[in-house]
Amino acid sequence: MNIFRLAGDLSHLLAIILLLIKIWKTRSCAGISGKSQILFAVVYVSRYLDLVTTFISLYNTLMKLVFITSSFATLYLMYVKFKATYDHNHDSFRIEFLLLPCFVLALLINASFTPLEVLWTFSIYLEAVAILPQLFLVSKTGEAESITSHYLFALGSYRALYLLNWIYRYYAEGHYDLIAIFAGAIQTILYCDFFYLYITKVLKGKKLQLPA
């Protein structure tokens, strides 16, 4: 564990908490993509299957449980409790166009061809692109509430911090995982446009509104 890894995990945790607070406080999931949230639930479940096979550390187990539980709690709030506020007309991204290619890629490029390893790899590829329905929703409506912007910033920062963690680990421990590094770089790149808008608008107190 190094400072970049810890900061990344905390940023990830903060993102999830911000999202739950936004939905709970406003009693609404307007502006949030249910499609992205479904993809994140698929990511956590397919990646954390090793919860039942391997014990790594208490920290590792607890964080995995928090990510899985909170992701299902978010889905419950969106699709059951505050269903009436869900913006499904704008949330029209076809997630099968992400799920299928990621699965095929995981079958082709993986560290070893075993069910758990392929599912882990699938989750890494899927996580890289899971935010696309959310970014698509923001671009369709042309704006995002400030708390939604903070959520996206924390979620994007998490993988960017992991990239620093991987650079650190490569030099400090000789540890690297090309699949995670490649997917993490793509994941971070997808947020760049949003990061720019966040820094130039939201941090200056303005609403995140896309140029017409």
Binding site: R5, D9, H12, D50, T53, T54, I56, S57, N60, M63, K64, F67, I109, N110, A111, S112, T114, L116, E117, W120, Y162, N165, H175, Y176, D177, L178, I179, A180
Partner: peptide, 10 residues
């Protein structure tokens, strides 16, 4: 490509 499971990262 790197190590196989188990992975110590989240």
């Amino acid at each position: 490509y790197g190590g196989s499971l188990p992975k110590d990262e989240l």
